[in-house]
Design a protein around this nucleic acid. Structure first.
Length: 234
DNA sequence: CGTCGCTCCTGGATGC
DNA sequence: TGCATCCAGGAGCGAC
């Protein structure tokens, strides 16, 4: 989540209110629910009105009441580049913007996707509907209540379950558990009150730290300028 | 309904 | 040195 939020902020700064002139699609399958032709037709000549985030999903609202849902998964990148920069084989889609720059979707593993939906129907999109409350900023009481309601299963699996609590991935689940000195495979119903408190504190701490450092320095993550984050885990 | 295991994909690591 | 095999990893999906 800190990585996605960093990208969201940078996009807000760089591409908000810009117009998408045209689109080059080099890997059709990353478009989850539309054909290349359909996507180009609906997205070309629109303006980017807002960039939001829910869990690890980016929501780009366009001027024609359509939204792009972008999930970067493990290795996806959105890069704000000059058109003269070389396009390598992992660049799968290019938006040409009216400021002379490009926004490129780059993804080594090809797990990421872009889904085009009607902005008015965002509430009905399964991915969005099924997210639990945002982890960042969650109060301890709410965190406790969630765990009590859930009761069984491994704690790490639960932390990463987006329908339970949204925005914690592998890195931050490990970090939070390490902070609280809780083994990832511990069952939820064996956690003491004080362990839950520590875990909540750990989660807030690592998310806050990573957000302030523009995301993690580990894994393949880079921001829209191609720069890695500066958050260094324990 | 919850949970498990499989799947997508590439490149870096490891094995021989 | 080169080739083959293994592994990571978010989340959707089918099986049970």
């Amino acid at each position: 989540m800190p990585e996605v939020e960093t990208i969201r902020k940078e996009l807000e700064e760089k591409v908000k209110n810009k117009k998408i002139l045209d689109i080059e699609i080099r890997l059709a399958k990353l478009l989850k629910n539309s054909s290349v032709e359909d996507f180009k037709k609906k997205v070309s000549s629109t303006s980017i009105e807002d960039i939001k985030r829910r869990a690890k999903l980016l929501i780009i609202e366009l001027s024609n009441k359509q939204s792009l849902l972008i999930h970067l998964k493990l290795t996806g990148r959105l890069l704000y580049t000059n058109p003269n920069e070389p396009v390598d084989k992992h660049t799968h889609l290019i938006f040409n913007l009216n400021d002379g720059h490009q926004l490129r979707f780059w993804d080594l593993r090809q797990f990421g996707y872009i889904k085009l939906v009607e902005s008015g129907k965002l509430d009905e999109i399964p991915e969005l509907k099924e997210f639990g409350p945002e982890a960042f900023g969650m109060y301890l009481e709410n965190f406790k209540a969630l765990l009590v309601k859930k009761r069984t299963g491994k704690i790490k699996t639960l932390l990463m379950d987006q329908s339970f609590i949204a925005g914690i991935g592998n890195i931050y689940a490990d970090e939070a558990l390490f902070y609280a000195k809780i083994h990832p495979s511990r069952n939820i119903n064996t956690l003491s009150e004080s362990e839950i408190t520590l875990l909540h504190k750990g989660a807030q701490k690592v998310l806050t730290a990573a957000l302030s450092k523009r995301g993690s320095s580990v894994d393949a993550y880079v921001d829209i300028y191609g720069k890695p984050g500066e958050y260094v885990p324990y």
